[in-house]
Design a protein around this nucleic acid. Structure first.
Lengths: 193, 193
DNA sequence: CGCGACGTTGATTTGCCTCAACGATTGTGG
DNA sequence: CCACAATCGTTGAGGCAAATCAACGTCGCG
């Protein structure tokens, strides 16, 4: 049950077994069915989740009503609203939705703060997780600005080869900032070589 | 000298005077003249800096040789390569250059780790700084994908009103992912109303 | 002064979007 | 279990926002 999450956080910091026990005890296991919107825009986000099994997406809705996907989360990754903290309970601008039946290990803001107090080392873990997330987001911003739609598509399927098999194609379009029709045209163009 | 940086980090965590003294003692004050490239692509970044005075930019160079600006840093902000750490000494993909004569307070990776050991609370500070940075970057990614060039330009000058007075216009174009010519056209269009 | 970097303006091109129509697939209620 | 609706991916025609290319005026600096 907790093996994977313990391995995940131990990549960055070494923990004693007692510390991992505290860590695990502060999470809540949740099964969430497919197509559940766990966080609506305007709500305050009251969770941060590690994905044991399943697939989720986090997205904005723009001024014209179009969705822009910020993140896909699959096994062994984290998802939550960034401004997640008991001190900063701003209403969220994003939606989080399950795309498959999911098994999650969830922190509430209070438990997260309790964790920081009881096992201060975890500050370091989440600092490093943030850093890696930021690095990925910066890289993606750079790609969005400087690459063509075809390049973006090719790099996406190279970097996340399993995602196209799991989610609808128009979600990938929304992630890449391309119209669904144009993704289709890119694919036929590539198939013809 | 250290007043500003101490206020900056005390926004997120409360420090004892002794802790702030340790913090300050681990930084190095540096004056860097205008147009100095402090970090080249391929080098490992050996600093993280708080800007006391001046203005810098961080940028990528894309496959066609075009610069894409990721960040402007001005007074009371932080700049450095994200993967900055003694454990992760990957070659950097970004350049960091001063646009004005600068006064900086600089951490080396070693001093930063020393800081984390001597004043563990600082993990929390830099976790929160990362988080805010990530939130801003996500917002910008969303804008880049879903807004028109004119909207991006207007939001930029609204959000960073002092930057256009300090840096060349084509740098703003590079930050927004717009051609310099088109920024010029947007401006004349807006001026005519 | 003269050179190079910068901003402007206009003509032309293009990558991608929008709109619309059409099969294929999924799922849902009777 | 079928019928019908809804969702999804594909394809084509047409349009537009922004890029590219090129020429020119201006400013700051060595």
């Amino acid at each position: 049950m907790y093996d994977h999450i313990n391995k995940n956080i131990s990549r960055y910091v070494t923990f004693y077994p007692e510390e991992l026990e505290i860590f695990d005890s502060l999470t809540a296991f949740e099964k969430v069915p497919k197509k559940t919107i766990m966080l609506h825009e305007g709500e305050t986000c009251n969770f941060e989740a590690y994905v044991v099994k399943g697939c989720l997406r986090k997205y904005y809705i723009d001024a014209n009503g179009f969705e822009v996907i910020l993140q896909f989360a699959i096994e062994d990754s984290w998802i939550g609203d960034i401004s997640f903290s008991i001190y900063e309970t701003k209403p969220s601008k994003v939606f989080i939705e399950t795309l498959e039946d999911c098994e999650l290990l969830v922190f509430s803001p209070e438990k997260k703060e309790e964790l920081y107090t009881k096992v201060p080392k975890t500050e370091r873990v989440f600092r490093i997780l943030m850093m890696r997330n930021l690095a990925v987001t910066q890289e993606r911003l750079f790609n969005t600005i400087s690459k063509t739609a075809t390049e973006k598509y090719l790099e996406f399927i190279a970097q996340y080869p399993t995602i196209p098999q799991r989610v609808a194609q128009h979600y990938i379009a929304s992630y890449l900032g391309i119209s669904p029709e144009f993704v289709s045209k890119i694919r036929t163009r590539l198939a013809k070589g």
